[in-house]
Design a protein around this nucleic acid. Sequence first.
DNA 1: AATAGTATGTTTGCCAATCAAACTAACGGG
DNA 2: CCCGTTAGTTTGATTGGCAAACATACTATT
Lengths: 379, 379
Amino acid sequence: MSRASIADAVGLTKATVSSLVGELIARGLLSERGRAPAAAVGRPGQLVALSDETVVGLGLEINVDYLAACVLDLAGGVRFERFLRRENRDTPIRDVFDALGDLGRSALNEAEAERLIPVGVTVAAPGLVEVDSGMLLMAPNLGWSNTPLRTEVANRLQRPHLYVTADNEANLAALGELWQGHGQEWRDFIHISGEIGVGAAVVVGGELLRSGSGLGGELGHLSIDPNGAECPCGSRGCLERVVGQEALLKRARLDAEVGTSIGVPDGGVRLLAESAERGDQRTLDALAEAGEALGLACGAAVNLLAPNTVVLGGIFALLFDWLADPLREELEKRAFVAKCSDVAVVRSELGAAAAVRGAASLTLRAVCADPYLVGSSGR
Amino acid sequence: MSRASIADAVGLTKATVSSLVGELIARGLLSERGRAPAAAVGRPGQLVALSDETVVGLGLEINVDYLAACVLDLAGGVRFERFLRRENRDTPIRDVFDALGDLGRSALNEAEAERLIPVGVTVAAPGLVEVDSGMLLMAPNLGWSNTPLRTEVANRLQRPHLYVTADNEANLAALGELWQGHGQEWRDFIHISGEIGVGAAVVVGGELLRSGSGLGGELGHLSIDPNGAECPCGSRGCLERVVGQEALLKRARLDAEVGTSIGVPDGGVRLLAESAERGDQRTLDALAEAGEALGLACGAAVNLLAPNTVVLGGIFALLFDWLADPLREELEKRAFVAKCSDVAVVRSELGAAAAVRGAASLTLRAVCADPYLVGSSGR
DNA sequence: AATAGTATGTTTGCCAATCAAACTAACGGG
DNA sequence: CCCGTTAGTTTGATTGGCAAACATACTATT
C-alpha cells in the first residue's frame, strides 16, 4: 500500500501516516517496495510493505504424534518449517522437551544465520493452557498435567532475552488460518482441528473468542448421541468417539496396521486417506458416518454462533473430500440458522501446519501491536 | 465514586479525571452526592455518580403474548415499567404496533412530566432483527416476517428527534442481565430466554457476542435427540419441542386449561408453576425432563464456550426451582469443561423483564459511549 | 489547641500526537 | 510545455493528557 491509501484506510491524515511510516521504516518493520502501477492520473505512490528481512517469530508445537517448528517473517513468509514425527505419549516428558528444544534452537540458528531477528516464541499444545502462567494444566490425549510449558521451553532455547508464550493448539490453529490463510475474508468462522482429539475454536468478527477461564473449544466432547457409548470424560456419545483419529482407524479396521506405521509421516491419517482412495468400503462408511457426526456437532455450534464458514483442519483437511458432503447434508438439516444465511464448509488451507503457523504469527502480532518491543529486548 | 478513585480505576491522572468529570457534570450526566465516609485518614472525597434526573432511555418489547415498556435513568432506576398481556399472534400487525405506540407514548409522557430527557428508544422483538436497517426479518413464533420494526415504532411515538433502534429479544435480555442484574460479576455467561421459543445469548468478557449475520442464539433448535420428533424447522429432536412453553404445557397436560386463561397475566407459566407447586406428577415429570434436556443443550454450549455461569431467564426463571437440579446434574455429566471449572446455574434476576430493561439500557449505553449525543438532538 | 500526616481535588505549564493547509514532487494529456 | 491530478512533506496550530506543585479537608499525635 502507499502512504496515501493507508491514510485513507485508517482515517489518519497523510501527514501523520507519513511520519509514522517513517518511524517504522527506521525500525526496520516496514520497507519501501518500488512505485505503485501509475493509476490513471497523478503521481504514483511509493509502496510500503511489512519488511521480510528483519523481524521473525518462532512457533513451536507439541502434539500427540509429532513436534513442529516454524519461523515466519512479518511479510508472512515461511523461513523455516519442520515436522518431527514422534510418539509423545509414552516417552518421558523431559525427552519431549529436549527434542523440542533442539528443534527450536536449530530454527533460531537458521533464522539468525540469515540476519533475521527473532522477537518471540509461542508454544502450541493440545490441551488446556493457562496463558498467563504458561502452564499446561491438562492434556488428556498427551497424558500430561500441570506441566510448566513456558519455562521448560524457555530454558532449552538458550536465548534468555526471548519472551516465550504458550497457548492452546486449537486456538492457534484458528489464528493461523485467520492470519495466514483465508480467515480475514471469513471473519466469522469455526475452525475444527481434528487430531487424536477434536477441538474447535471460534472466530467472531476477525477476533478469536477466548473465554475467561481459557477453557472451551471442546467440540470433541459434544454429545451427539445422548445414549451412545461411554467416553472416558464421563459423558456418552461424544463426538471424539466417532471422528477422532483413533476412532476412525478402528472403525475402518485399520487399527491393526497402524501399529506397524508408527514413525511414518502422518501415520494414521495417511492410512485412512489411502484406504479411502482405494475405495475400501469400511473406510468409506467410517468417514461418511464421521462426516454426519461432525455435521450434527457443527449444527449445534452454528445454531448458537451463526458463523459464515466452518473450516475443517488438522486430519480433517486431508480427509475433507470424504467428510464434506455428509457433513453439509447433516448441517443443512440441523442448523436452523443455516436456512437464513449460507454456511460454507471448507477445507483448511494450512492443514496440520495451521497451529505452528498461528503460533509464529501470534508473536509477530504482539510486535505489530507494540513496535517498541523491537530492540528493547523482549518484553 | 470519588474523582480520585475514578482516576485510579481508569488509569488517568486526577487532573484529567477532574476536568472530564467537570464537563460531564456540566452536561448533567453526573452529579455530586455528598462526601465520602471519611476513610481512616486524609481528606474525604466528593462522591460523584451518574445522575438520575436528566437522561433516560426507553425500552419497548413485542413478544408473543405481551407488550412491555420501561424507562430507565442513568443511575439504573426504573422510572416506568408496564407489561400489557396481549396475544400478538393472530391479530393484525398494525394493531400490535398501535398498542405498542400507545404504551411507548404514555411512558415518554410520564418521563417528560418528571422533566427527564429521553435520549433514545430500543425495541426488542423475538426473532431475527437486522440492527442496521431496523427490520424484523423473521419471527417464526410471532408469524411475522420482513416487518420494518424501527419505522413502524418511530412513526407512532410522535417524537421525530428520538433515535429508534431495534434488536433481538434474547440479546437484549442478556444485556439487561449484564447491566442491570449481576452480569458484571459473571462476565462470561450464557443467558437462556425461555418464552414460546427458546433463545440464548452469549456474553464473553462482559461483552455480548454478536455474529456478523446478526443471527445466532438459536439454542431452541439444538438437536438433543438426533432421532427424536420432527420440528417444523426441518430438524429432529429440537430442544424447543421439549422445553418451550407450549411443549411444557402439553406434556403437563395443561394445554386444555390454557385456552381458558388467555388474557390472564403470565397465562401459561403461571399455570405450570401452580401445578408444580401443587405437586402434580405429570407437571413435575415434564419439568424434570425439561431440565435434563436443557442440561444437555447447555452442555454443548458450555463445552464450546466455557462460560462460568448459565442464567435461566424468561419463563425458566419462574420454573427455576424445578429445572435447576436435573439441569445441573445433566450438565455435570455432559460438559467436559465443567469438570475443570465450576459452572454455576442461576436464576435470572430480572426474569421476563430482562429484555425491556436491556432495551432501555442499550440506548443509555450509547449516551455513555458518546456523551456529545445529549443535547445534539438524537443522533 | 497546635502540628504533623495523609488523601482529595485544582491549577499550572508542558509534551506528544494529530490535524489542516500550504507546499513540493511526479506523472499523463491536451 | 503547461495544466490537472495525485503523492508525500513541511509548517504551525490544536488538543488530550501528564507531572508537579498547590490548596483543602480530614485524623492522629503531641
